[in-house]
Design a protein around this nucleic acid. Structure first.
Lengths: 238, 238
DNA sequence: ACACAGCAACTTGGCAACAAGTTACGATAG
DNA sequence: CTATCGTAACTTGTTGCCAAGTTGCTGTGT
């Protein structure tokens, strides 16, 4: 029989789902598991390293391996036109956000075409990290043309909520033309920002935001979520 | 500086995105890369093994490592009430589907509660695999109560399209109460069915299907997509 | 000139021995 | 009795060496 490693991963994952293994619990040592599954130690070790990369367990040299403490899984409405902050607050989460950058974006065909911007347009990126229970759970980038909001350079660094900023400019209802969703793995930088391991999948949601009244394109948005922190609600309703 | 391994992964991934590395191309050997990045061979090796697990490269002992051939990425509308088959055909893909199982489902609190079924109800699972260009891209499970369609046991094994089956029963318009989306890794069985490596993330879409006219619950659906084959369109429109 | 065997130099794959860190416990000294 | 130190037995982490597979060149015989 091939692929003992994957069988071990399946077995341990099942035990975690069935609650046979509890959060915080210590796993048997590599040697004990190797005896149990009748495989070389290295096979068990590789399986455990993968589980660690996925963020399910952690190890302490000389002590052993432990299941991570269970962390929240948030049911997040991906659709709908209310702001992220409002969604979170209406669900009663300990939620906060932190601005991480406000920079001029060098010309980039993908972003510029999304914004329907010409090469001579000036585009800024507003980046922030969203936290639930003090844990980072998403990176949120807003790309805005200077033409659309001429005072953006001055306002930018102090914007806490783009929605609030738009309301201040008399825009109250938003819609979007297209929302795309894909799955990636974190770069080294994203791992640092989101405090996650290299094999935690990220969900990337890209959309445009349009003033419902005037149909003017406001921004191009890219949100990068830790996929292990959410069950996404994509119900279409109302 | 820590985490050389991740820096190597980032670098190779960037080169792939920038098309500096072409599909099918042979990568430098572990030793050459170790020299280039000034790290021990084992570090390069671990980075390459992760890229292999993610499905980006493959290796041949004695020969070397190669970039996988580029495969299609389909833009898939996740929302909307047309059937999967219709979506695919309207987009002109070489699409087909294969029934893989029709079985009685032993009592399971999660599935039964989704179906609003009591413990004495009989529930069947219809499983099929969906292919694009002969490549498996999704596993589709439909859970149906016998009460809803009394002849399901007889019909089941020959059902090619659930939507067609419902239409035969006079149901023409469908809707759903809630659609949830999450990300997981494949079990060993799912790896075999979807012909993918252990670290290819899967997108799981769970929904109920309701007859729009009578509001009767028809089925509970669970679709498991290979996340590397799609960009999902979750635009809410019309 | 050509065919072929054999060898050398490369590739990736696997593993065993060793290193490093933690804990538990018992001997020993005060 | 108590405190402390040392050691042995465990844990996970690292690495260097050799096995296995492929390629290509070179020498040899025809």
């Amino acid at each position: 029989m091939e692929n003992k490693e994957m069988q071990i991963i399946d077995d341990i994952m099942n035990r975690m789902i069935q609650k046979e293994l509890q959060p915080g619990e210590k796993l048997p040592s590599e040697n004990k598991l190797a005896d149990k599954y009748r495989v070389p130690r290295i096979t068990v070790r590789n399986a455990l390293l993968k589980l660690e990369d996925r963020g399910h367990i952690y190890s302490v040299q000389g002590k052993g391996r432990y299941l991570k403490e269970e962390s929240i899984q948030v049911q997040l409405p991906l659709t709908g036109s209310t702001s992220f902050t409002e969604k979170m607050e209406s669900m009663g989460y300990d939620y906060c956000t932190k601005n991480i950058d406000f920079t001029l974006v060098p010309y980039n065909s993908k972003i510029y075409s999304h914004l329907q911007a010409s090469e001579s347009d000036i585009v800024y990126r507003i980046g922030r990290i969203r936290y639930i229970n003090k844990e980072p759970i998403a990176i949120h980038y807003s790309y805005v043309k200077e033409v659309t909001f001429p005072t953006i350079q001055k306002d930018g660094p102090n914007i806490n909520s783009m929605f609030a900023y738009y309301r201040k400019h008399g825009i109250n209802e938003f819609t979007s033309k297209q929302t795309l969703l894909s799955v990636t793995f974190p770069t080294l930088e994203e791992q640092k920002l989101l405090a996650c391991k290299s094999m935690v999948p990220l969900m990337v949601v890209e959309t445009d935001s349009v003033d419902k009244e005037t149909d003017i394109l406001l921004e191009y948005t890219k949100i990068i979520y830790r996929s292990d922190r959410f069950k996404y609600d994509i119900t279409i309703n109302d």
